[in-house]
Write a protein that binds this DNA or RNA. Structure first.
Length: 253
DNA sequence: ATGGCGCATGGAATGCGA
């Protein structure tokens, strides 16, 4: 079973890239973030034509998440239960016997800002919910744009901002990992300076000035059968790319 | 030193992303 996550930064603009990528990679599940469109505008028919079902939770201008799957998804959940939020950042569904949680974590803008406080509150709510979710579903994967670089090696040495690398954010990431979830990327040997996001400015992609902020965390039952995890940089080199690259895992199931 | 791009909204300039 092949699972992937990709922040597409506007599904409307990126649909051709997504369709090409689905055709070449043939994942069983693809989690999308930053759809930036409302549900009636979701390109369900175009994706159906590629052989993918979709469940989604969109909104105007910002945010929006979806789970695409070859098999139809069951038990779809929208948002974090008990955490009232206008922003559409979470969708979860069961595909086969795997619970897939797709998240677009808040950016946080700057440490100490109002948006940062929202990010931390959101992270606390997510972690509390995941505690029950991981108990209910032994086979669980949390995929998405975490907006956190978990360790120093996950940020380019020239990254000077505190956001995405602050101790508070890294502790929050570790609190999620402490639920028993493993960072699939770190289950395997990887090349140094592996990143999943590069700023559009400053020729950042060419200089590999990036961050690893898109992650796939796996429950023990899934980590045990994980064969590989890689970041596919190829779509970031296309014309009009998303600023994020897809992250992919393959599970022996 | 600053901001440097891309997207959405709305129909110019601004907010936001990370």
């Amino acid at each position: 079973m092949k699972l992937a996550t990709w922040n597409v930064n506007s599904l409307k603009v990126r649909l051709p890239h997504v369709i090409d990528w689905l055709a070449s990679e043939q994942p069983d599940v693809l989690c999308l973030q930053e759809l930036k469109l409302e549900d009636p505008a979701f390109p369900a028919a175009e994706l159906e034509a590629e052989g993918y079902h979709a469940v989604f939770s969109g909104q105007k201008t910002y945010n929006g998440v979806a789970i695409l799957s070859r098999e139809k998804a069951n038990d779809v959940a929208y948002g974090i239960p008990g955490f009232a939020d206008e922003q559409k950042r979470v969708i979860a569904a069961t595909i086969g016997d795997v619970r897939v949680v797709c998240g677009y974590f808040p950016n946080g803008q700057a440490v100490g800002s109002e948006k940062f406080a929202y990010k931390m509150a959101w992270l606390r709510a997510l972690t509390a919910w995941l505690q029950t979710e991981t108990r209910q579903y032994p086979k669980l994967a949390l995929l998405g744009d975490y907006n956190i670089a978990p360790e120093p090696r996950d940020a380019h040495p020239d990254w000077k901002e505190e956001i995405h690398v602050s101790p508070a954010e890294r502790e929050a990431f570790q609190a999620i990992a402490a639920l028993g979830l493993s960072d699939a990327f770190r289950l395997f040997e990887q090349t140094e300076k592996s990143f999943s996001w590069w700023d559009y400015r400053m020729m950042a992609f060419r200089r590999n000035f990036g961050l690893r902020i898109d992650h796939i965390l796996l429950s023990p039952a899934l980590a045990a059968v994980c064969q590989n995890c890689r970041i596919d940089k190829a779509p970031r080199a296309l014309e009009r790319p998303s600023d994020h690259a897809p992250v992919v895992v393959e599970l022996r199931t």
